[in-house]
């Protein structure tokens, strides 16, 4: 029984049972397998649409991740009521290019959503992402506001600090989940990168995550598992994160990082801030759980 089937079964089954709580169990053994050396691609350039294609090319292009008919979820950070140039949200051009590539790769459906911190409509609008996607004008593409009915309780079997939480159903049952965080400063976790971006698909009182945040993010990463992480460092926020607001805190780098290994992507992105992977608790915790590589020497970096 795979995860998707299980989710479907649970929903069919709960159709008859009023008070039953559907629960997910992710088999730990599936996660523990030995991995080959992780690939990570870095590209630099001012044409962001072309940059997305370039950074994916060494990894085999979007076709490597999205198969025909797939239900694809692209999860940007659009959690803040901030303008694109303020670097609090993922660059709309990057999100648009990824969505466009996923559609070209034959995706049956492309969903884009984030559980925002500021008011959701303002975030979707002012991040520029809603308008950028509207420009693609494709019926398979949908930018959705979160639907509270779709948060389902999930058992996190491998979790050390976080053993169960409500997670968004669409994020769990996607064929291809693409994580597209913006790289930026964060008071508590120092940086917010790929693992932290997964907090946008969970329900509940997210403030509770802040106690032992690094380990909890690693625990969450055992169940929210992107096939591809693309870190937006076209411009990064150096101070007053995660929402910024002062353009003096923004640094333009014109850089994208892509990897199938979420830990490797975060580890590499850390260096853009003159920090080491070991400085970020969630990276270390995820590495220790075998979720990916944080040793930069062991990551094969391909410059595209």
């Amino acid at each position: 029984m795979d995860r998707r089937q299980f989710i479907k079964d649970v929903f069919l089954w709960s159709a008859g049972a009023t008070l039953a709580v559907p629960q997910f169990r992710i088999i730990p053994s599936a996660l523990a397998a030995e991995r080959p050396q992780p690939l990570l691609s870095v590209a630099k350039g001012a044409d962001y649409a072309a940059l997305v294609s370039r950074v994916l090319a060494p990894l085999g292009g979007m076709g490597q991740f999205v198969k025909s008919g797939d239900k694809v979820v692209i999860k940007p950070n659009m959690g803040w009521d901030r303008k694109p140039e303020q670097a609090a949200n993922t660059n709309p051009l990057v999100v648009m290019a990824l969505a466009s590539l996923a559609l070209q790769a034959g995706a049956g459906k492309v969903l884009i959503f984030d559980r925002s911190c500021n008011e959701a409509r303002r975030c979707y609008a002012n991040s520029g992402i809603q308008a950028a996607l509207a420009g693609l004008d494709d019926r398979r593409l949908k930018i959705d506001h979160m639907d509270n009915r779709k948060f389902v309780p999930v058992q996190i079997a491998r979790g050390k600090s976080l053993t169960s939480w409500e997670i968004y159903k669409d994020a769990l049952d996607a064929d291809c989940y693409i994580n597209v965080p913006v790289a930026k400063h964060h008071g508590l976790s120092r940086l917010t990168l790929g693992l932290k971006n997964s907090m946008g698909v969970i329900g509940g009182n997210r403030g509770d995550m802040h106690h032992d945040l690094g380990q909890k993010l690693a625990d969450l990463a055992t169940v929210v598992r992107p096939k591809l992480t693309v870190i937006d460092a076209t411009r990064i926020l150096l101070r007053n994160g995660p929402q910024g607001g002062d353009l003096n805190d923004v640094k333009q780098l014109d850089t994208l990082i892509a990897s199938a290994d979420p830990v490797a992507a975060d580890a590499y992105a850390t260096t853009l801030f003159d920090l080491q992977p070991a400085d970020i608790d969630s990276t270390v915790a995820a590495y220790n759980m075998g979720l990916g590589e944080m040793d930069l020497a062991k990551i094969k970096v391909l410059t595209a």
Binding site: C117, G187, G207, D246
Partner: peptide, 15 residues
Amino acid sequence: IPCIVCEEHCPTPDK
């Protein structure tokens, strides 16, 4: 216990 959720959300550009 670590927290500072308030700091994270404080919206003034200079928090």
